[in-house]
Simulated scan of single mutants.
Amino acid sequence: MMKRLLSFACLLLFFGSCLKTPSNTNNSNQQYAYISFLHLAYYSPAAELYFNDSLASTLLNPLQFSGSYGHFYPVTYDVKFKTSTGTVLGDIPSSAYDTAQFYTLLLYNDSVNGSAKVVKIQDDFSAVASGQAYYRFFNMSPSAGAVDLYLAGNKVQSARTPADNITQPDFNAFNAYAYGYYTVTVKKAGTDTTLGSASQVGFQSGVAYTIFIDGPKDSLYLNVLTAQY
């Protein structure tokens, strides 16, 4: 069994530097919507992100993601993830992105070798404050089944099923937790069988994190992403 924590240095794609549309600008007087993306469709090919048919990213392999939220004009966008040959893997047609709001575009598979789907998640940082760290957990591994999440040996979430945050949006909210350095462990639900683990992961005061798993259950990928905006 392989347990891997993906390297930020290897996988972070800095959204702003990838954009090829006028939506990304350094004009400090402009009001923006803030958008990040995660390509967690492990069983799907690499894809490029398009906003209103304008290329907005480099070619993204599965398990690649933006390193921070990109700044975009707050308008309506038709979002598509396309392969290098132009095949649309998933799209969100004519969806509004509002001023000073944060969004994550998540490309995922809901079954092993299944087709890709995409969802827009509205990220709420309004409760994030100093004195606590904040986390949420995405089970994006179709083959992992139900899992339990542990921080420093304490079970903090139980029986999380693949892509359950899509049908139960409350799982997209950030949960307060004491800041510090912890081992993050994912186990098969209701058992002591470890599917993935990462030690000495730093959770800082006033910072929000997305923990996710993806890939095959016997070689699970586990990562902890820092929200940067």
Rank of each mutant, 00 (worst) to 15 (best):
M2D: 15
K3P: 05
C10D: 13
L12C: 06
G16Y: 03
S17E: 12
S17V: 13
C18E: 15
C18T: 10
T25W: 07
N26E: 07
N27Q: 13
S28Q: 08
Y32C: 11
Y32N: 15
Y34D: 06
L38T: 01
L40E: 07
A41P: 08
Y42C: 01
E48H: 09
E48S: 13
Y50A: 04
L59N: 12
L60Q: 15
L60S: 11
F65G: 09
G67W: 09
F72K: 02
V79A: 05
T85E: 08
T87M: 06
D91L: 11
D91K: 14
P93H: 02
T99G: 00
Y103V: 08
L105K: 05
V112A: 11
N113Y: 10
S115F: 06
S115E: 11
S115C: 01
A116V: 04
Q122R: 14
Q122D: 05
D124N: 15
Q132G: 00
F138V: 00
M140L: 14
M140K: 01
P142A: 03
V147N: 01
L151H: 09
N154L: 13
R160T: 03
I166D: 00
I166R: 00
T167H: 00
D170M: 11
F171E: 07
N172L: 06
A176M: 04
Y177I: 13
Y177H: 11
G180K: 01
G180I: 02
V186Y: 05
G190A: 09
S197C: 00
A198V: 04
S199Y: 00
G202N: 12
S205I: 02
S205W: 04
G206H: 08
I211N: 01
P216M: 10
L220M: 15
L222R: 10
V224N: 06
A227E: 15
Y229P: 10
